[in-house]
Design a protein around this nucleic acid. Structure first.
Length: 217
DNA sequence: CACCAGGCAAGTA
DNA sequence: TACTTGCATGGT
């Protein structure tokens, strides 16, 4: 297992190269992006983020002061806009109530404690919390998403109903606990998933990992 | 036209 | 605990 996961990484890196994740000019922007990208294509998230930038709202204080209604209008391109406006607000409420509105204070927490706090916020689940931990707070935490599960299932490394924690545990146990590695590895899995390892994709044979399992779901 | 995209929470049994 | 449904725009 250890060998295969390390081999996959080298294979993917050789195929696709560096992915330069996470695009964002600040830790706060990465957090906002992590919430907006839930079940959503990144292109649509960029439109939403650009709208916030144009209104000079892409900082904690301004976003905290803006009404949920105004937020919803601006982030509309990212989909689920009413829901996500609330989720941004619930994050900001915790940030201001408990950490003086400063990401720096929040990120002073230990990794387990920070994860716990993030998961306690309405609208932040395991994947979003881990994305924030890895890509905003630079902690060596592995992010598991739908692509990760599909790819590992097709490699017959997990059952199709494997839990988030089980899949995450595979990577944690078999790879060097390294933020840079986890950053690049997750991004490469997303790249492979988008490009080749999709549901019932006829291009499956072109998978650089040598995929054999053809169906998923 | 159908299907997908870097999930999560709330409701039901 | 395990399953279902609502949320919603934009690309292919």
């Amino acid at each position: 297992m250890k060998v295969r996961l390390n081999y996959f990484y080298r294979k993917l890196y050789a195929q696709f190269g560096r992915q330069h994740w996470w695009p964002g000019e600040s830790h706060f922007e990465v957090v906002v992006g992590a919430i907006l990208t839930q079940n959503t294509n990144w292109n649509n998230v960029e439109r939403a983020i650009n709208n916030l930038k144009q209104e000079n709202l892409l900082n904690p204080r301004a976003l905290y002061r803006a009404s949920a209604k105004r937020l919803a209008l601006l982030i509309k391109p990212s989909g689920y806009y009413n829901l996500k406006a609330k989720r941004l607000k619930s994050f900001l409420t915790v940030l201001f109530n408990d950490y003086q509105g400063k990401i720096k204070n929040l990120f002073n927490l230990s990794t387990p404690r920070l994860r716990q706090v993030l998961l306690g916020i309405n609208g932040i689940g395991p994947e979003t919390a881990d994305s924030i931990l890895l890509y905003a707070a630079a902690r060596p935490v592995f992010v598991v998403d739908a692509y990760t599960k599909r790819i590992l299932f097709r490699q017959r490394l997990i059952k199709r109903d494997a839990s988030y924690g089980q899949v995450q545990g595979l990577f944690i146990k078999n790879l060097k606990r390294d933020t840079r590695l986890f950053n690049e590895y997750h991004a490469l899995l997303v790249r492979l998933g988008k490009e080749i390892c999709r549901k019932n994709n006829p291009k499956c044979k072109l998978c650089p990992l040598g995929c054999r399992q053809k169906s998923f779901k």
